[in-house]
């Protein structure tokens, strides 16, 4: 199972699309590793600098409809090769979400008021997320401040995470 713990980056915008996550001009690469320098290069978000803000990040927390647009799995891959295996949002575009679980990564939805609380309490603080996959909880911490929130992943997606992805899962079963 992949690592779902570490420093969190808060991206305070909805509808971040896969062209912003990894622009099409880099889709000519045929290895995942080659995508690493270009993650979120075209993100339109005031104050965001991909060359600085992604350093040491393992988890992204954002708003609605993350990963909309192109079906490119290069978006999860660009996250993965940067050590980011977990994105938490109010909701996701269907293809992006399935691509994440198909890679054994996680795209987890939390209610909007929970996301609001997390932004209010932890955005910009250098907060750390620790994931208890068995219990289904994320714990956000910064100094003395701690907040634990429950999450739900469907049984199927949970099995994909445990299997390491859809190829591994499907190969055993079909």
């Amino acid at each position: 199972m992949k690592n779902f713990n570490g420093n969190a980056l808060f991206l305070d915008r909805s509808d971040i699309n896969t062209d912003e996550i990894i622009p099409a001009k880099y889709l000519t690469e045929i290895t995942k590793e080659a995508l690493a320098p270009f993650l979120l290069e075209d993100l339109k978000l005031k104050g965001f600098d991909p060359s600085k803000n992604l350093e040491g990040i393992s988890v992204i927390i954002t708003r609605e409809n993350f990963g909309c647009g192109s079906s490119r799995e290069h978006a999860p891959w660009a996250l993965e090769v940067n050590g980011i295996n977990l994105v938490i949002a109010e909701n996701f575009a269907r293809i992006f979400k399935q691509n994440m679980f198909n890679c054994g990564m996680m795209a987890v939805e939390l209610p909007s008021d929970t996301i609001d609380d997390l932004f209010a309490g932890f955005a910009g603080t250098g907060a750390v997320v620790s994931t208890d996959f068995e219990q289904g909880t994320f714990t956000f911490s910064h100094g003395e401040l701690k907040k634990t929130v429950p999450f739900i992943v469907s049984d199927f997606n949970r099995d994909l995470v445990l299997a390491g992805g859809w190829v591994e899962y499907a190969d055993k079963k079909y």
Binding site: I95, Q98, N99, N102, V167, A170, D171
Partner: peptide, 30 residues
């Protein structure tokens, strides 16, 4: 198809969906 605009083919009363490369890979293999 590994292309989000695969939904186009629904015009023919088909279920057509864009998917990522892993879904495509399993589609090819299985």
């Amino acid at each position: 198809m590994g292309d989000s605009h695969t939904c186009t083919h629904g015009a023919f009363c088909a279920f057509a969906a864009g998917v990522g490369t892993t879904d495509l890979e399993v589609g090819i293999l299985k």
